[in-house]
Design a protein around this nucleic acid. Structure first.
Lengths: 272, 272
DNA sequence: CGAGGTGTTGAGATTTGTCAACCTACGTGG
DNA sequence: CCACGTAGGTTGACAAATCTCAACACCTCG
């Protein structure tokens, strides 16, 4: 069973998406084909609780109907399945409906870097824009559902709906800024500061989504956290233990409770 | 005198821009005001040698004229001047015509991180899109000229010229991908590998622009390189010396010659 | 119930940072 | 045009942070 459901701090807020057909046969693990004109009638951005972070966020009601035409289909992605891989042809931007993803980047020398973790409402695949193929891989860390938004449709609607055009630019810029934040994290912060920042960020994003920000289950391994933070898994593990010892958090494997968020925040401000 | 001109490897290829008025009085160091309709008649993307990396890159000839309307004005930025600062109202995306910039990001705790170096043809300010203000600061590392492209105009033209819309998305995505590359650099590479990657990258970009890729003058200090690479300036300095000792490069202060590019590339591939 | 993936912890090695001294180059102003 | 001041660069000795290797514990899933 999905470990999320064993954590009482997660509400079942996303029930609507439970109607998605989940028979194995309908699971499409490579980019969907796009029979022009077809689309899932179940998708209604106007009723989606995740709209604020998603592409439709902040759009005036009168434009929403147009934008809903973009959402071609939902797609179920099982744990460890790849939503897309680096090098796959770029067709869609995806919005996470439920679940949790990592994106990672490999280089020719065998290095592997986790470039982000994505939860409900967040967008995946924007790096594929313009070049024809995705530059990193998106992998589900738990069974997940996504909305697939074909770029060909986004382009067309964006030309006709300025609010969407503007919004698209905003989410692209947000991704650029996110990158800059990680550069600061990796370039200017100690291991301790990085992990504190990571936990605080995770906590905030969970809270925004109506989950508990103080008690949650990590969806990723120590190794994945380490890759993301530029640390070895042992260092991450030791820091979890140290934070626990110092009364900042409770940890037991993937279950984390933040006991003293102020204390974590103080770790980020050693200067002054 | 500008140190670039003392380096014979730099051609004077960008002569046309030398006509820009450079009396102190015309130097505008804050974002230009935008008297609607006005624009510099000297700007002709069609004739610009930097078009390939710039916003107008790859556009069909018939669309270029429309796009040229976007370029509102050139602006001269003196060494150490700020093209924009984090928090300034976002109005324009800038293309570097001549010169060299760094972008850097400060946080509330006084950390400071260089997020990029930008040379001719490269674009600055895209992180300001959507949020109304720039998120980082752009500082000229030598006297520079930029093209200012007001976002309000870009938006309008992009709606009417699909090729520009597509191109805009592509350059935004390119910036996202650049960020991912730096994450890999900072998260997965040793100090030695980072500096080697930095030099190789610089060399490639200079070569693309018709400069020498093997002999060049660094525009930034060791401290700025260090910030960008997540290293201390002493470490950067030691590595330069070590590369010199190993016969990979010649260094004397800011003057660098790459002697053995293959050797540098080998440093990036220690695995195998 | 066993296997394999994941997490923890220790000891010691290595890399990188810190502090300090000194050197070099460049721009400014006399 | 030179002298000086200052920012930037180099190098050494040492300290500290992080990694490596290794052993073992835990947990989940089949």
């Amino acid at each position: 069973m999905d470990s999320r459901t064993s954590n009482s701090s997660y509400p079942t807020a996303l029930a609507p998406s439970a109607e998605i057909s989940s028979q194995p046969g309908t699971v499409i693990s490579r980019p969907v084909e796009l029979p022009a004109g077809a689309r899932s009638l179940e998708v209604l951005c106007a009723k989606c609780k995740l709209r604020e972070t998603c592409l439709s966020g902040g759009l005036p009601a009168e434009d929403l109907a147009r934008v809903e035409n973009i959402v071609f289909a939902r797609r179920r992605v099982k744990r460890n399945e790849h939503l897309f891989d680096a090098g796959d042809e770029f067709r869609c931007i995806y919005a996470v409906l439920t679940g949790f993803f990592k994106t990672s980047l490999g280089d020719s020398e065998g290095r592997d870097q986790v470039t982000g973790f994505f939860m409900d409402g967040e967008l995946l695949g924007m790096d594929g824009l313009g070049s024809g193929c995705y530059k990193d891989s998106a992998i589900a860390l738990e069974d997940s559902d996504v909305c697939a938004m074909p770029y060909s449709l986004i382009e067309g609607v964006a030309r006709q709906v300025p609010s969407l055009q503007h919004r698209l630019h905003a989410v692209l810029a947000r991704e650029i800024v996110r990158g800059h934040g990680i550069m600061m994290l990796l370039g200017s912060m100690s291991a301790e500061e990085r992990l504190a920042a990571f936990l605080i960020n995770l906590s905030k994003r969970l809270l925004q989504r109506g989950y508990s920000g103080s008690s949650f289950v990590l969806r990723m391994t120590r190794d994945e956290i380490g890759s993301y933070l530029g640390l070895k898994l042992e260092t991450v593990s030791r820091l979890f233990s140290a934070f626990h010892r110092d009364g900042l958090i409770e940890v037991q494997q993937k279950q984390v409770s933040i006991v003293d968020i102020k204390g974590l925040e103080r770790l980020l401000a050693p200067r002054n």
